Simulated assay, not measured.
Amino acid sequence: MFTGLIQALGKLQPLANDRLQISCLAPCDSIMADIALGDSIAVDGVCLTVATILPQGFRVTASPETLKRSTLGQNSTQRPVNLESSLRVGSKIGGHFVTGHVDGQGYVSEIIQTDSAWEISFTVPNPQVARYIVPKGSVGVNGISLTIADCSPSGDWFKVAVIPVTYDETNLQYLRPNDAVNLEGDILGKYVERFTQLGVGSASDRPDNHNPPPDISLDFLATHGYG
């Protein structure tokens, strides 16, 4: 589990047998200070397990599904990757809950610099990913926790406003139109979607068959303040 607050940047180098080497770019103390074998580290939003520790980096093995679904298998631009260590018990949660399980890819459509921020727009061609794009909701873009400022009704387009500190400390500064990014929808929205599809189970599945709780539906959520 992660929070979408990037700690450092790294350089990704593909190796044989689906292995990847990530070399930290200074400063990287927050990543390397207490790294251990088996640790989870988000690399551009993809949760990977440390298999080898290097003096200033680490190696991991990525599954074929991970390479297919994310940008890690096509890092042809050689832009730096975002790095974040897994959430520790008691740590601050400054972004939102990010699992590191990327839903799919989006593409940069426009970058506009304003007086106080960078407005970056993305297209989301896959409807299975676009369904989790909602107004003012949270989204992970290359592992960065961002708030959706605007989006199309279907979610196939959205825009975020990026403040200078986020822009300067992540690989958003290297993005150009048509570049691919990793996208992860908010896990809370996925659970709500699942519950609205299945309800809370049939009466026979519940310990108290006489007073079953109401099924969770969109109407139920709206009535109880989740509008």
Rank of each mutant, 00 (worst) to 15 (best):
I41T: 05
A42V: 08
V43G: 01
V43N: 00
V43T: 03
D44H: 12
D44A: 15
G45I: 02
G45Q: 02
G45F: 04
G45E: 03
G45R: 04
C47K: 12
L48N: 15
L48V: 15
L48E: 14
T49N: 15
T49G: 14
T49Q: 12
T49H: 15
T49Y: 15
V50S: 04
V50T: 04
A51T: 10
T52S: 14
T52M: 12
T52W: 13
I53W: 08
L54K: 04
G57S: 13
G57W: 12
F58N: 01
F58R: 00
F58K: 00
F58W: 11
R59Q: 08
R59F: 07
R59S: 09
V60A: 07
V60P: 03
T61F: 08
T61A: 12
T61G: 13
T61V: 13
T61C: 10
S63M: 08
S63V: 03
S63I: 05
E65I: 05
E65C: 00
E65V: 02
T66Q: 05
T66L: 04
L67D: 02
L67A: 01
K68I: 00
K68F: 03
R69L: 10
R69V: 02
R69E: 10
T71L: 07
G73F: 10
Q74R: 08
Q74T: 07
N75P: 04
N75G: 12
N75S: 05
S76H: 13
S76Q: 10
S76C: 09
S76K: 05
T77Y: 07
T77S: 13
Q78I: 07
Q78M: 08
Q78G: 01
R79G: 05
R79F: 15
R79M: 13
P80K: 05
V81D: 00
V81N: 02
N82A: 13
N82T: 14
N82F: 05
L83W: 10
L83G: 01
L83I: 02
E84L: 09
E84W: 09
E84G: 07
S85E: 10
S85A: 15
S85I: 12
S86H: 05
S86K: 03
L87E: 06
L87Q: 06
L87T: 06
L87H: 04
R88Q: 11
R88Y: 08
V89W: 13
V89E: 08
V89A: 11
G90F: 05
G90K: 06
S91P: 00
S91R: 06
K92S: 13
K92A: 04
I93M: 09
I93W: 04
